[in-house]
């Protein structure tokens, strides 16, 4: 069974994100880049499916600049068999729909039976690419999955997806797109042998033209980024309790308009 895993390189969770001089982008200087954590669940699940079935191929794919290759190397070090790097300046500011269209073109060329991705990337938190990819392909999609079981002849997959207070269970025909929620598994560490072995695995570079993407028209564009406003300092109301309570109630009513 062939599985494609879509991954994204994102700033490390400890990064203090700053807006760059171009107000539509973040300042990438000094950022440590990591594989988006939800994508690690997707990689792990793909590897487990392959191991459980005793055969198959796991292909990692990403869209991004040169540095995004590190993310593919991490995926290969964890155990993916090969990788595809969609690396084209024309896709530099791809919105989720453009990303989904590019991934769909990769899927058409690779013809996997399953696509796995994280439920969202932790940078822009859009959480849209998985479902949009399924839509472009005309495939079924289940998001935020907590468990999956593929039948013996790889015709259907039973998934449990997280909903309020429980699991929603679906049987879905393959091929399909599934997005991983935390709790699906515990991702393995790349082993040191895996890191060394990853050097010998193929990372194929692909341009937009190789995917037949002639005109790239984003559906969304970023107008501006704004930092969160600084939290205003707290206020201590002095005086005896009776007066302080009166003042507190007045302030909640008139200043904060909370009651």
């Amino acid at each position: 069974m062939k599985i494609l895993v879509a991954v994204k390189q994102v700033p490390d969770t400890a990064t203090q994100v700053k807006i760059s001089s171009d107000p539509k982008a973040i300042d990438t200087a000094g950022i440590t880049w990591i594989v988006s954590p939800y994508d690690e669940f997707a990689i792990e699940e793909a590897l487990r499916i392959k191991e459980k079935r005793g055969q198959g191929e796991v292909v990692a794919v990403t869209l991004g600049p040169d540095r995004a290759k590190e993310t593919l190397r991490s995926a290969l070090a964890m155990g993916c068999d090969r990788a595809i790097h969609v690396n084209d300046p024309a896709l530099a500011n791809a919105d989720t729909m453009t990303t989904a269209r590019a991934l769909a073109a990769v899927v058409k060329q690779e013809a996997p039976q399953l696509v796995l991705c994280g439920r969202q990337a932790i940078d822009d938190d859009a959480g849209a690419v998985g479902a949009q990819l399924a839509e472009v392909l005309g495939w079924p999609c289940a998001s935020w999955i907590m468990e999956e079981t593929i039948d013996a002849d790889a015709k259907t997959v039973r998934v449990g997806r997280q909903v309020e207070g429980g699991l929603e269970v679906f049987d879905i025909p393959l091929p399909a797109v599934l997005s991983a929620q935390k709790g699906l598994n515990e991702p393995r560490y790349p082993t040191l042998k895996g890191i060394m072995g990853a050097k010998k695995k193929e990372i194929k570079d692909v341009k937009a033209s190789d995917l037949g993407l002639s005109s790239i028209t984003p559906e969304l564009s970023i107008t501006a980024l704004e930092a969160l406003p600084a939290r205003p300092p707290g206020r201590i109301i002095p005086g005896d309790v009776k007066d302080a309570v009166k003042e507190l109630v007045r302030s909640l009513r008139e200043d904060a308009k909370a009651i």
């Binding site: 190397r73 070090a77 560490y189 790349p190 082993t191 040191l192 890191i195 060394m196 050097k199």
Partner: peptide
């Protein structure tokens, strides 16, 4: 090298 960095990071995370 890239490998050296990845190895360090893998052990650091562990």
């Amino acid at each position: 090298s890239d490998d050296e960095r990845m190895i360090r990071d893998a052990v650091r995370d562990w």
